[in-house]
């Protein structure tokens, strides 16, 4: 069993990074093409689940020492914070701001507060999925 695990674990690590990269891509694509924080977050967590399958829970939690509840809270705070920023400008809540830029290589891009909001969504989704899986997994 142990030797097999090593192969599995190594491949998993590779796949994990691929998944993470892909999920980040999906996340950023969201505003213009299908994707977004939600799907991105789910993909990331499935990557972590893969790690969980290959290693045991303890190893993963030392590899990724993350308190997922806090992650959820921070995600929510980011999302709320983005939306609430508009309160300080006395415009309706959730008013976003964006600007188009033309960058070398990447062409026309935009910088958008909505992306920040989506990042909050991303964090919450990862946090939630991992919390659920972790708590069920820890329970014997």
């Amino acid at each position: 069993m142990k030797t097999n695990d090593v192969i599995l674990q190594t491949t998993t690590k590779v796949i994990f990074f691929i998944i993470i990269l892909f999920s980040i891509h999906i996340f950023f694509a969201g505003h213009y093409a299908p994707g977004g924080g939600f799907v991105g977050g789910l993909l990331t967590s499935s990557g972590i689940v893969l790690l969980l399958l290959a290693f045991d829970l303890k190893t993963v939690s030392t590899m990724l020492p993350i308190n997922y509840t806090v992650m959820v809270a921070i995600g929510l705070l980011i999302a709320l914070g983005t939306a609430a920023g508009s309160i300080f400008f006395n415009v309706p809540f959730f008013t976003h701001a964006f600007e188009y830029f033309t960058l070398p290589l990447l062409g026309k891009q935009s910088l958008h507060t909505a992306a920040l909001f989506d990042a909050g969504v991303y964090l919450v989704v990862v946090g939630v999925t991992m919390t659920i899986i972790q708590s069920i997994g820890e329970d014997e």
Binding site: G36, V72, A73, E99
Partner: peptide, 28 residues
């Protein structure tokens, strides 16, 4: 006006972002 191309996603994070904010709250 919204600076996006994926209408569904823009609705989710902008036009109706409030829904999304609380939808992730439900998840949390």
């Amino acid at each position: 006006e919204a600076g996006g191309g994926n209408i569904v996603n823009v609705i989710l994070v902008d036009y109706r972002g409030f829904d999304t904010l609380f939808e992730i709250t439900v998840l949390a």
